[in-house]
Design a protein around this nucleic acid. Structure first.
Lengths: 351, 351
DNA sequence: CGGGGTTGCGCAACCGATATTTCAAAGATT
DNA sequence: AATCTTTGAAATATCGGTTGCGCAACCCCG
């Protein structure tokens, strides 16, 4: 609308600078800057403010990010270190983070710290050293990465939060309640009458894996059931397949499985087929984390959904507080998880 | 290594600036800058160069990105506009792009332009106007987004490429050979003896959808087969389910389906089950794009894999050329696709 | 009518780099 | 010995903002 009034419309505009706005409104750039930033120390006539605002609007003025960063020593940028982009769990967290960041005037750039591309940590310090970012969102699942170690040792060197990970010794963990969700999953299975419940866990050196196992065992204990049916595998299809294969042959009496990730669950389903067990008649399966495709597996997979989007939001909020100078504090998102019932859980076989 | 020689080791370092390096090496900052940037117009004694280099190393000097951006009018940043972060297709492209960008000294920031968050386009122009980015990677699937229209009309206003999308009227499309891959899929099905082959296509206003259909029809024609079994649905599970449901009831004689996306294929499998058709005995299914989980569906899904990583790499390379001043040119990745045979394709039923 | 206190805004220094210009000292030339 | 070139590096302007301070003009008051 206002663009057309300039007559320039959608012509290949050149960037308008502060001085351009100043010239057009007949004041100096310092006044323009203060008006646009609502500097309370500035005394200006309302009509002057209005002229400035109007000129800025007319020119489509936007402060140059680099110049501003230079001045105020703030970039308006966060970096997100992610272990695996193709894992939709992280994608959802990232989405929540990006949106929240945008609401706060921040943008986020991505680095991947996959096991096959271990450059992530180094890249991070490059970003920090180059003054490119104001803070780090670290979702790396790799234990004892040099980056994590450095951050734990010098927590104040740069604003940061660990996302979906409880790093020992850090007061900057933003997490969901994995244990609570795991307890809920077990409770759900038990409500169908299952007693011999097993867990497909993850690599024991990964904290999220042990949290699931802890939740599992604690709820089993509360129910007076034996929590000894544990098998560990990688957090992917292959890992789930292998762990389930092993557990099903070691303890064929198991009637229900709590699985740590969706990827694993897909593998578990394959292993169950291979073992000649039909889900859910001969074996019930529930997994941590809900993804859309779960609804279309055969059978449709019962899951417990986690507030991953909220996790991303909370992570950015926590980071913003640090940037704003507030003391660091871990955040745990306690609820907002729920089992989404589908077709992979039923009562145990009569036998 | 060199860090420990400073004695500061891993202490909470403060950023070293150009002047710090200058002071330490006993020259002025202009000399330091030119030495570090290999300015050919600078004449300096080798020993002076060495002193500067050593000082920079010792201080762990890294130029401040904002300051440099201000000076050279380049940010070292690209932005990637992505329609759906949770879609692993885009994740793989993004991964390739990020890695390549990093090799070239660039970082990439993400914006999501989902249908449920249509702010993406606006965010983009904010990024450009604020001088935050040197170029745009546009993978938005949304047809006629205002951003796309603006870029097509003023192609030189900002460096950009369209990724995995053939935008009419643009010379900046970086694509894979969807038609060729589609032809390959059809050929593969035909090699099993299928003649009544159908396609589950996508929204007709999305260019990638029509490309698949075109490839399908052209190969069917080449084979002397009728290419009339077409059903369209959204590119997700739901869309695949609905389209397949419709096609299977409309044309029950179909013996094989070429499906446009993995998400759709999952829905197609569900629809087949619902229709009482067992895959692959009563119905063969192959889909465009390979993802790890395809191997664990029931049955394991035969797919045609695409060079998505290479696509991301090529997109960044094309963008870099534009930034470097080269004339824009579309790029098509012609081969590197292949069918990965699994369990969802077999010979048509004898009947 | 002159002095003190606002009101409203301009001046100029910085932020940390890059790039062009200037200049002192050393060596070559006559 | 006096001038002309080179060599090597210092000065300085600039990029586009932010921010502390200064300073007129205006007001009110005695």
């Amino acid at each position: 609308m206002s663009e057309t009034t300039t007559g320039a419309g959608n012509a290949p505009r050149v960037r308008a600078r502060l001085v351009d706005v100043a010239e057009l409104s007949g004041v100096t750039k310092s006044v323009v800057s203060r008006v646009l930033n609502n500097d309370p120390t500035l005394r200006a006539r309302p009509e002057t403010r209005e002229r400035v605002l109007e000129a800025a609007r007319e020119l489509g003025y936007r402060p140059h990010a680099g110049a501003r960063a230079l001045s105020v020593a703030r970039t308006g940028t966060f970096a997100f270190l992610i272990p695996d982009l193709t894992n939709s769990v992280y994608a959802v967290i990232l989405r929540g983070a990006i949106r929240r960041a945008r609401e706060l005037g921040y943008v986020v750039l991505i680095a991947e710290d996959a096991s096959h591309a271990p450059a992530g940590a180094e890249e991070y310090s490059e970003l920090v050293d180059a003054g490119r970012v104001d803070g780090l969102l670290v979702a790396s699942a790799r234990p004892e990465s040099p980056l994590v170690a450095a951050l734990v040792e010098h927590p104040d060197s740069v604003a940061h939060v660990f996302v979906n990970r409880e790093v020992p010794g850090s007061r900057r963990n933003v997490t969901v309640d994995i244990r609570g969700a795991s307890r809920l999953a077990v409770e759900y299975l038990a409500s169908f009458g299952h007693e011999r419940i097993g867990i497909i866990s993850g690599p024991p050196d990964l904290q999220p894996a042990v949290a699931r196992t802890e939740g599992f065992k604690s709820k089993m204990a509360d129910l007076g059931l034996a929590g000894d049916l544990v098998a560990a595998g990688d957090f992917d299809e292959q890992g789930g397949f292998e762990a389930a294969h092993e557990l099903l042959s070691r303890a064929p009496e198991v009637t229900a499985l709590y699985v740590s990730t969706f990827g694993q669950a897909v593998g578990v389903l394959a292993a169950a087929r291979e073992a000649g067990r039909v889900v859910p008649d001969d074996l019930s399966v529930i997994c941590y984390d809900d993804v859309p495709v779960a609804n279309y597996l055969n059978p449709a997979l019962t899951t417990v959904s986690m507030p991953l989007n909220a996790l991303g939001v909370a992570a950015v909020d926590a980071l913003m507080e640090q940037v704003g100078g507030a003391p660091a504090a871990s955040v745990a998102i306690e609820d907002h998880f729920a089992v989404v019932p589908r077709k992979s859980v039923a009562a145990p076989p009569a036998s």
